[in-house]
Design a protein around this nucleic acid. Structure first.
Lengths: 207, 207
DNA sequence: TGTACATCAGTGAACGCGCGTTCACTGATGTAC
DNA sequence: TGTACATCAGTGAACGCGCGTTCACTGATGTAC
C-alpha cells in the first residue's frame, strides 16, 4: 500500500477518535497528514471510500483482538468468554470507530464489497463463541443455535454501545467497566446451560 | 405549547425518519413546516435544542408504547416479555429516532435536563422488566438484580440496533423480524430461571 | 371608548464558514527504442 | 547512452452549496390608563 494511503488511514482513525465522525472531513485528514487537500483523491475515490476503508481496518483489528484473546485461554467456555470481553473491550477503547463500523452508513454490502468481507470475517469469529461455549451443541437444532448466536451477539453489542454512549453509570460498578462487562457476559454461560438442559421458555413456565 | 412549536417537532420527526439525521437541518425543518428559516428560533435556542426536544418526545412515546403493551398482559413473565417486544418494536418502527435517542449526541444530562428526565422515566420502565419477570427476586442480592437488569437492557438494545442497522439478515428467519425478536427475548426467561436456580457461572462448570 | 405602549411571532437579507469536488497544472519516476 | 514519451502522485485555485446564526424589521395582539 502506498505510504500516503496508509498514513491517511492512520490519521483518519486518530481524528475519528479524537473529534468524532462529524468532525472528520477529507480536508482535515489531508491537513493532518501534512498534504494538500486534494492528495487523498489519488488514493480514494471519494470521502465515503476513505471512511469505508477505515471501517475495514477496524474490522481487521477486531478480528485480531479476538484471535489474540482466544489463543490465551484453554477451555471452550473460557475462550467464549474471552471473545466477549475482547469484543466489548475493543468497542470501549475505540468507540467512534466501533460506531462507524456498526452504524447504518456502511451497512450496504453492495456499495463496499471489501468492507462486507471484513464484516463477515468478524461475524464468523463472533459466532464461534457459541460453538466454543457449548460442544454438546449437536443436540440442538440449527435454528436454536443461530438464535443463541444472535442473542450472544446482541448482548455483547448492546452492552458495548450502552457503555460507549454513556448510558450506564459505571462509577457505581464494582470493578468498573470491565467488572460489569464480566458479570454481564458471564450470563451467556447461564443461557447456554439453560438451553442445553432443555428448559422451556418463559410463557410455558408455571405461573 | 405554541402550535408552530409542536408542528416543528412533528415535521422534524418526519424528516428525521425519511432522510436521516444528517439531512436534518433547521432550514429544512422550517421549510417543511411552511415557515421562514428563522421562525424556529422563536421556539428553540439552537438546532441542538430542537433535536433534543425531538428525542424527548421519542422517550415519551417509548414509555407510552411500553405501558400500553404491559397493560395487555396478565402475568409477570408475559408482561416482561411484552416490554421487550414493545422496546424492539419501537426501535424498528422509528429507527432514526431510536438512534438519535440513544446515540452519543444527547447523552449529557447536564446539557438537556428535560431530556435526562425523559430518559430516566424510560429506563425505569425497562428495569421493571426484571422485577416483573422474577417475583422471587428477594433471594438475590441487589447487585445481581442490577446486573441482570443491565443484561436484559443490553440484549434488547443490542438486538434493536443490530436489526435497524441491517446487521442481521431477517429474511431467513421464521416469523421474520418479530419472530426472531420473540425467540431472542424469550432467552431472558432462561437467564432468570438460571439465575434463581443458583446455577454457577461459566468458569466454574466442570470442563 | 380611545390612545399609547409593550410584547411577541414571524420575516428576509446578509454574514462567514467549511465542505466535497472539478480542473488544469507541475515535477518526478519509469519505460521503449 | 540518450532521447522521447507515458504514467503517476501531489498541488493549488476555484466552483457552488447548504448550513447555523446575526440583525434589523414588520405587523398583529394584548394591556394600562
Amino acid at each position: 500500500m502506498a505510504p500516503l494511503k496508509s498514513e491517511l488511514l492512520r490519521v483518519a482513525g486518530d481524528l475519528l477518535e479524537k473529534e468524532g465522525v462529524d468532525a472528520l472531513s477529507l480536508r482535515r485528514v489531508a491537513a493532518a497528514a501534512g498534504v494538500s487537500h486534494m492528495a487523498p483523491y489519488r488514493h480514494f475515490d471519494k470521502k465515503d471510500a476513505l471512511l469505508a476503508a477505515v471501517a475495514v481496518t477496524g474490522f481487521r483489528d477486531l478480528v485480531a483482538a479476538i484471535d489474540d484473546a482466544v489463543s490465551k485461554e484453554e477451555t471452550g467456555p473460557l475462550k467464549s468468554r474471552a471473545i466477549g470481553m475482547a469484543y466489548v473491550g475493543f468497542a470501549c477503547e475505540r468507540p467512534a470507530l466501533y460506531r462507524l463500523m456498526f452504524g447504518p452508513r456502511y451497512a450496504d454490502p453492495e456499495a463496499f464489497p471489501e468492507l462486507a468481507d471484513a464484516v463477515n470475517a468478524a461475524a464468523t469469529r463472533c459466532f464461534e463463541a457459541v460453538t466454543l461455549l457449548n460442544p454438546r451443541q449437536g443436540r440442538q437444532d440449527l435454528e436454536a443455535a443461530e438464535t443463541l448466536g444472535i442473542a450472544i451477539w446482541s448482548l455483547a453489542h448492546g452492552l458495548a454501545t450502552l457503555l460507549i454512549d454513556g448510558r450506564i453509570d459505571v462509577d457505581d460498578e464494582p470493578g468498573g467497566q470491565a467488572g460489569l462487562a464480566e458479570r454481564v457476559l458471564d450470563i451467556i454461560g447461564r443461557i447456554a446451560d439453560a438451553d442445553v438442559s432443555g428448559k422451556t421458555a418463559t410463557e410455558d413456565r408455571p405461573a
